[in-house]
Design a protein around this nucleic acid. Structure first.
Length: 240
DNA sequence: AGCGCCTTTCCTGCTT
DNA sequence: AAAGCAGGAAAGGCGC
């Protein structure tokens, strides 16, 4: 399933990946990008240039580090001891194995690995491109892993009613008008994401008000009610 | 090193 | 009276 999904998505975007290009050509295009990365500068050019099947234990570790860096994953959620294995063993891990070893990131890491095996590392050097693919896939929402902006956090909470526990609700779905139902709960959740237990709705709302200036939000003259502006995206139905 | 962006923190005054 | 709103000011964090 994963293969067919990613393959079709992959082939549909010739800018990211020309199917005629070889794996080595693809990975070669990224070498320079990572030569500028001061973190593990020396090793990037090595592990990205070989197939995952041939990675050493060290390379596997570097790959995990790369994923954490690139997608802002919380390394504490990943059991690194479970990944003290070589590339061949890594490639033999099932999706369930990944879930066991990396919790909420398991499915995601599995997805990344399978795509690197198929298409090379360049597939994942552009976080924005990767995000598009994940959003179009049936994987867990990548915004949970990546998005750091407050308005995106709010948007994604609105888009996941099963997760927001009635904290936010749409007032007018079509116009992008929504209401903050539990203000302090929202602040607490935002604080959790930012690892800041001093967050309050008072402060969060100040940040929201700054969005009026940039057109991310529009003012609605009602208490606890906000509206997405013309510069907000991704909140409309049937539109990503 | 420095700059810009996005908050975070704090504050005063105002409104509901 | 309590909670929310409006923004100014300044500082922090982080990516480039």
């Amino acid at each position: 399933m994963l293969e067919s999904v990613t393959q079709s998505m992959f082939l549909s975007n010739t800018m990211v990946c020309d199917p005629l290009m070889s794996w080595t050509e693809l990975s070669g295009t990224t070498k320079d990008d990572y030569a500028t990365c001061d973190h593990q500068k020396d090793s990037y050019t090595f592990w990205t240039s070989i197939h995952p099947e041939y990675w050493s234990k060290h390379n596997v570790c570097e790959w995990l580090q790369f994923c954490c860096d690139q997608y802002k994953l919380d390394a504490n959620c990943i059991s690194f001891s479970r990944f003290n294995i070589n590339g061949l063993q890594l490639c033999n891990m099932t999706q369930e194995d990944f879930l066991d070893a990396a919790g909420i990131y398991g499915e995601y890491l599995y997805f990344i690995l399978q795509n690197i095996r198929m298409h090379g590392i360049s597939f994942f050097t552009d976080a924005e491109e990767t995000k598009k693919y994940i959003l179009n896939s049936c994987l867990l929402p990548i915004q949970d892993l990546q998005n750091s902006h407050l308005w995106e956090f709010v948007r994604d909470l609105l888009l996941s009613p099963e997760k927001n526990g009635g904290i936010l609700e749409w007032e007018d779905r079509g116009q992008g008008i929504f209401r903050v139902v539990k203000s302090e709960a929202l602040a607490k959740m935002w604080g959790q994401k930012k690892k800041n237990d001093r967050m309050t709705y008072e402060k969060l709302s100040r940040a929201l008000r700054y969005y009026y200036k940039t057109g991310i939000l529009e003012r609605v003259d009602r208490r606890l009610v906000y509206k997405f502006g013309k510069n907000a995206h991704g909140w409309q139905e049937n539109k990503i």
